[in-house]
Design a binder for these strands. Structure first.
Lengths: 315, 315
DNA sequence: AGCCTCCCCGCTCATATGAGCACCATCGGA
DNA sequence: TCCGATGGTGCTCATATGAGCGGGGAGGCT
């Protein structure tokens, strides 16, 4: 069965060519070669199972489709886009991912959607690459974190996107995290904040940030007091999804710290149909896995090395 | 039409994977992805036409299937085997081609066949590589040419093959070319020669030599007197197929020289169902083309460079 | 030889598939 | 505003295809 003569081999190749390349039907091929269509079918089966015909899925672009599909299926994601880019410096990488995410967003957002945007550098990178967007309401999902290295803040991000889209913007000026729960409560009652929050339930698609709960791996971590960080770490927090903390099992972690965050909460995020994150860097493997396990994040735009790491470690 | 969003792209890739790699049906895929089967079909069409799925035919062996099929179709051959071997020295090449031809012969010769063998170095190389053969009569098609560089002659070649096969051998001792027609006539009436010739009509498969009509490109040319060579050349002879001379259009050339050759003639060869030649070397391009055009030769075992040359020059 | 087993072949019939068509939404121009 | 063009969708129906079956030939064993 495993060894064929050369005539058989060439015949099979010939038929495979006719079938796959020329796209003729098996009946036609059978007539041409004076074989029964069953024989043709068997030869084609044989050709495939013996590896004589190899089918590759690829395309001339930045997206590694093979990896994308694998990642999507392995993690059970609604969407996965893997950008095939050599490991360049972080800003360039963010731009690349931002472009891919922007393309994705333009494509999947329709006029019926309500778009939610959280604060994250990757999300900023995305909005910078965004050129067209259906006219939809854009809702700010988190308070702003002002960092010296980022000029745009959460507010600008939302405003810019809404302007591009032509839809209304629901935005507010407030920090992402405040020193105590009472302040947070007060802020949440501010009219603009309250209005934005009131729209959380109608958000149908969102782009969020995704941080690994460690120094330098989450802007929120870096912005928070050490005590709070440690407390959350002790509770098993592995990832923060734009202010929603989850542990390695994907369970949202409640804590006093949670109350100090001005952002969408786990329950609200869970109701959003599509939540897309744009993680990069191998340090985020565990965070991504946790976020996906939580079910909160169901779409990912990332780069090849992280995608491969996610696939490899998937036990 | 030519630009898709990444989501579309990944969806298409996903479907292509399911269809081509996993082998699921379009209906199943449609159910899985909540699409109509028509949509799935259209996406798959799109994927193929846009080059997203690429189908390659290859295999881990010495035979270049792609080239073989192309050659077969371009020249309208019954069989074409192209051995993919780096341009090595001639004897090694002959061995390689001999092996391929031997495999081919073992495969296609059945007990109902009658095998004809002409004299040629390549045919000798083939018989040396032959290990199994259905029990068939083996008929010597040409007289022998004794050359200092070849130990086996036409007779040995036939005897060896017949022994391997287990069938009867029809062989004779006579030179391939004699000084005059009268001698040839006399030789043809010798009992063994006459008997072999009487079997020419029943030969169903034959392996022949193929020479380009020029010095060093045909053992027959080299063995003949200069005058005869020139005369044939003047008549437009481009190739000799084991003693049958053909011009560039593939027309057999009759001449007084023809009568001096002890070998199968054009008419008899034309009746043979499969006639296989084993040409090699780029100098033989024109000869191969003539031989194929004549319709006398309908199977070829060769190497990649010659195959490519034949394909390129095919206007 | 006689028997058995395996394998190869081509059949039937249910199902999958493709070609062509009609419908509908969208969009640009009169 | 209306109209025609356009493209995308899913239908029908004829055709292609796959699963499973039985016949028969080749080869091995007793």
């Amino acid at each position: 069965m495993e060894s064929f003569g050369p005539a058989q081999l060439v015949l099979t190749a010939s038929i495979a060519r006719r079938y796959y390349v020329d796209g003729r039907s098996k009946v036609e091929i059978a007539d041409e070669f004076r074989l029964s269509r069953f024989k043709v079918a068997r030869l084609l089966d044989q050709a495939r199972s013996s590896g004589l015909v190899r089918i590759e899925i690829s395309h001339p672009g930045a997206i590694d489709l093979e990896l994308s599909v694998q990642l999507q299926e392995a993690l059970g994601l609604r969407r996965a886009i893997v950008v095939d880019t050599p490991e360049v410096d972080e800003p360039a990488l963010r731009t690349q991912l931002g472009k891919a995410a922007a393309d994705l967003l333009s494509e999947i957002v329709t006029a019926e959607d309500v778009l939610g945007l959280a604060w994250a550098r990757a999300v900023t990178a995305m909005t910078e690459q965004l050129t067209t967007l259906a006219p939809v309401p854009v809702v700010q999902l988190t308070g702003a974190l002002t960092r010296p290295d980022v000029e745009a803040n959460s507010v600008e991000l939302v405003r810019h996107t809404a302007r591009l889209s032509g839809g209304p913007a629901y935005l507010f000026y407030a920090p992402l995290v405040v020193p105590d729960a009472a302040t947070a409560r007060a802020l949440r009652q501010q009219p603009e904040v309250a209005e934005a929050i009131s729209h959380f339930d109608s958000v149908s698609k969102a782009v969020v940030g995704l941080g690994s709960w460690a120094a330098g791996q989450s802007t929120l971590y870096d912005a928070m007091d050490e005590k709070a960080c440690e407390q959350l770490e002790k509770r098993g927090v592995v990832a923060d999804i734009s202010g929603v903390f989850v542990d390695a099992d994907g369970e949202p972690v409640q804590s006093r710290v949670t109350d100090r965050v001005i952002a969408i909460n786990a329950e609200q995020m869970d109701k959003i149909d599509e939540v897309i994150a744009i993680p990069y860097g191998l340090a985020k493997v565990a965070a991504v896995r946790a976020a996906v396990r939580s079910g909160l994040v169901n779409g990912i735009v990332t780069h090849a090395p992280l995608a491969k790491a996610l696939l490899n470690e998937t036990n």
